[in-house]
Design a protein around this nucleic acid. Structure first.
Lengths: 232, 232
DNA sequence: ACTGCGCGCTAACACTGCTTGCATAGTAAA
DNA sequence: TTTACTATGCAAGCAGTGTTAGCGCGCAGT
């Protein structure tokens, strides 16, 4: 079970390749990520990379996986740094998500943007360990804690169970049983957070708003109030 | 001012090129759109296309522009077919947006997805005739009609003017003066619509929901009720 | 009839992902 | 220590890409 020298070198090389890929991604966009460029940057030749990844697509996929973990860790840390109040935690996590996304727009695009068939359909497999599930878990956990402490108003339970209930099996499977009110509020909140941040990162709001942060803060405040937080 | 034969042929060729590009885009994703493939499909050679577009990037941009117009027309038509009630119109326009997006996922990605630097920063220019503005206008007009007929509850006006007001100049510029309540509700609603549809098209919901339409309908109903529509 | 512009072609350059075959260096067993 | 093996790198090459340069043909206007 000891780690041999070769394994150590190998994982180091794998990391170096992914780092190079990310550097190129950030500096030149997705099109700039080429095997030959990565290899050139690390003083290798392109075919050598095939000893570590079966294809460029697989490399990008591995990189995207790392990025999801990085984002999830950032969001979780933001929540933990926000004290004990679950609504404060949710606010901090939402802001953490937005901040990371704005500071890493190209990485955001890789994770949450157009699923490029050539860059691999990152959403092909969707078992309980789907990237989305890994990323949504901390949010869901916080919603659940808040719900158990003090429920908030939602649409009538029967209505949600009739319309939404039959289509939530994947969620139950990956996150365990949850009150449907929590599931609905999470999905609603997550789609609103995603929409606002994606529009900002993808420059889809510039024609209307100069400072998307203002809109974000208003929306966040409204959402948290709906969850029972005290207004500002 | 008459249209010469040459001009007629030229615009026909331009259309044929864009049609070929779209065909390739739909069948093989963004990566499949290559000058040589387009030219091959229409019995030409690649360099000939440079007589019509200065680069592949410009071609894609022109195509995206056409697609935005197609989508805007679809949405407007859906609204007009929904009768006189503005809330019904808004519902129909939202459903129209979702339907077109789902039926044309790759085109949706080109318009609203990751702004690929290599495919042109479609959001670089943002005057009053920005694509987003052209697309948002029909929605805004309908929101305004509804507001004048019967306002709905919103956050306090002073609060919105303090936080949002200073950052809405582009919106005023492109759409004229509007009550800030209308501007806010439009932006909020548009980001929610975008978020939900983008997540569905980009397969970002499959880990949680099998039938995103159900979630969409619930959210739409909640939003319209908030606007004063009668619940189902 | 002649001039010029519009348009399409071939050839070429500099890239890309990926495969094949060969050499080398490090590891592990005899 | 010697032998066998495996992991890793390389050069060469294939098929494809966007783009440029230069040539030639034919339609359009004078």
């Amino acid at each position: 079970m000891t780690i041999t020298r070769r394994e150590r070198l190998r994982t180091a090389t794998v990391s170096e390749i992914k780092e190079g890929a990310r550097r190129l991604l950030v500096s030149g966009g997705p099109q700039a990520v080429s095997l030959r460029a990565i290899a050139r940057d690390m003083g290798m030749t392109a075919p050598a990379i095939y000893r570590y990844f079966p294809s460029l697509e697989a490399l990008i996929k591995a990189l995207a996986d790392d990025l999801i973990d990085e984002l999830a860790a950032t969001v979780t840390a933001a929540g933990e740094a926000a004290g004990d109040d679950p609504t404060a935690q949710l606010g901090a996590m939402a802001r953490g998500f937005r901040r990371w996304s704005i500071e890493h727009p190209v990485e955001f695009g890789l994770i949450f943007g157009t699923p490029n068939p050539a860059f691999g359909d990152l959403q092909a497999e969707c078992g309980p360990e789907d990237p989305g599930a890994r990323f949504g878990r901390p949010y869901l956990a916080t919603f659940l804690r808040l719900w158990e402490r003090s429920p908030w108003p939602t649409p009538p339970r029967e209505l949600m169970e009739a319309h939404l209930g039959p289509h939530l099996e994947p969620l139950w499977l990956s996150q365990g049983e949850l009150p449907i009110e929590v599931a609905y509020t999470f999905l609603s909140g997550w789609s609103r957070l995603y929409g606002l941040v994606a529009m900002e990162v993808f420059n889809q709001l510039r024609w209307a708003v100069t400072e998307p942060e203002a809109l974000f803060e208003v929306e966040l405040a409204m959402f948290l109030i709906q969850l029972g937080a005290a207004p500002d």
